[in-house]
Design a protein around this nucleic acid. Structure first.
Lengths: 129, 129, 129, 129
DNA sequence: GTGGTCTAGACCACG
DNA sequence: GTGGTCTAGACCACT
């Protein structure tokens, strides 16, 4: 289930997109599955429908979701959603930011890697490159 | 040397603080070393001195730097400023955010770990737990 | 309510952070409470919004406040952010400075202690060690 | 002995005035005692003579020291160095600042008072009001 | 509407 | 020369 945490520093729309991406990556949502309606999800989460619509729009633009007119939104078939250059750019940025965030906390490298591995393992990921 | 990347989504001041933290963590800047002056660095980077001053102020407030009036800023002795609980909290947040960022990029877990390890290895890390 | 005293040697932003910290410590502001908006408080105090923003930014960085994008700033849950060693260091510094400030004023020790006690008593302090 | 600590956030001149005030308050320097010369102290401390001269000038202006032309500076006789209003103003400011510094560290009131009392006791203070 | 960021330019204390 | 503070005004992202 999606959860909105008010204390979370991430914008609400980001929390939604992150949550849905994780569910898709982890198999909780399979290609073809329908998503809750904008109004329904907004009501359920107690937030503004505009915020949900914005999150859905972003996911659609990135190829995660597919709109079928009059029917709603569905999880798209697996496909290359981003160009390799774009993937690599985002990947590099994420690693960079993560290292900057963690570098001052003085954890051992192995501790950091173990923790990342543990967190990643919650989401099945069969792609090998 | 510090580099400002205009395409970087991080604010300029954040890029500066990150860069300096990394230099300190990696030993490029040792305790007692002087930092470039606010005006000097601003001119070198082609940005407003206030932006540099803001970055320096944050690092000073966090205990990374120490001001000696009239003389300039210097790298402070490193000490553990945060409680274990706070360190853990921030660590968890960083890991969580990182996983959210990369989970959708379809990289293999090992690829991700290798990249993080490579990036971390640039910085000496003496702590073993 | 917050008051800005022009004769006060503390910078304006410092007066604001001090005042808010005291209100939080004394229970006048509880976790979850909203703070006056940057622009609103600036107008009310007759100062520049940037000055208020700076004070708020510092309190946020130190963990006293939490920003919810688009909604404003709120008092965060209190938690112990600093290590015991760091707390002790700052405590020692404060005591040292205080003694230096009052040692030349020729007040009796008991007079000084009574005054400090009176001032501290305005703020609930549940910790017993 | 006076000590200059480079890591101290206080300006050097402030460190000197504080140190001399403490010595006078604690009896290490008695009325009539001569002070080291500006140049001598500056050389001993490894700092700029201007800084020492400035510190001496402040102490003289506040009535702690007395200049005898051609002979040097001496500790002044005990006397009311400040108006009562000025004493009270500074006292209030010092208490206020101290409380603001300590309020966020979450120490018990008694702990704070004990520490202040202990620190004050290092300096004999017989005046009772 | 909210806070966050950056620029520009001024004034101060310190050495 | 150094950093620290404040003002003024602009633009952005978020709700």
């Amino acid at each position: 289930m999606l959860q909105i945490v008010t204390g979370d520093p991430r914008p609400i729309a980001r929390q939604i997109t992150d949550g849905i991406k994780r569910q898709i990556a982890g198999g909780g949502l399979a290609p073809g599955d329908a998503l809750p309606s904008v109004r329904g999800l907004a009501q359920q989460l107690g937030i503004n429908p505009n915020t949900v619509a914005k999150a859905y729009a972003e996911l659609t633009a990135e190829g995660w979701l597919l709109a079928r007119s009059g029917l709603g939104l569905f999880v798209a078939e697996q496909r290359q959603r981003l160009s390799d250059a774009e993937r690599e750019r985002r990947f590099g940025e994420a690693v960079d930011r993560f290292v900057s965030d963690v570098i001052g906390l003085d954890y051992a490298q192995q501790t950091i890697l173990d923790r990342v591995a543990a967190e990643l393992s919650h989401y099945a990921n069969k792609k090998t490159a």
